[in-house]
């Protein structure tokens, strides 16, 4: 039996300020994880990642991160991705400060 695919989002960092960004279903880049397109199919994930890579003039280092459907949109699975949605824990800087 084929391994079950873990849903993904495409994420990267913004070229100019380095902030974490997510690819939406409408080919926008959002700074909010909840806006990301939750991709439930492996082939589509690769396709979306390739699309992101083509956008190199405005982002750095796109990759696929595990995610799960939540109440308000996709939520991160791993703690690293959860930190990326907030910012550092020692200061109120980054996304958490803008919320």
């Amino acid at each position: 039996m084929a391994r079950k695919f873990t849903p993904k989002v495409v994420t990267a960092n913004d070229l100019l300020d380095g902030d974490v960004i997510y690819l939406t279903a409408t080919n926008e880049w959002s700074r909010d994880h909840a806006d990301a397109q939750l991709i439930e199919d492996e082939a589509l994930a690769e396709e979306r990642l390739a699309h992101a890579a083509g956008d190199f003039a405005r982002l750095v280092g796109p990759y696929l991160a595990d995610a799960v459907a939540g109440e308000n949109g996709p939520e991160p699975v791993h703690f690293r991705e959860a930190f990326r949605t907030r910012g550092p824990s020692n200061y109120n800087h980054g996304k958490q400060a803008e919320a």
Partner: peptide
């Protein structure tokens, strides 16, 4: 990198 500029989790 030759000029000390990294990209980290949340920013450069």
């Amino acid at each position: 990198l030759m000029n000390g500029l990294y990209l980290q989790l949340h920013a450069y």
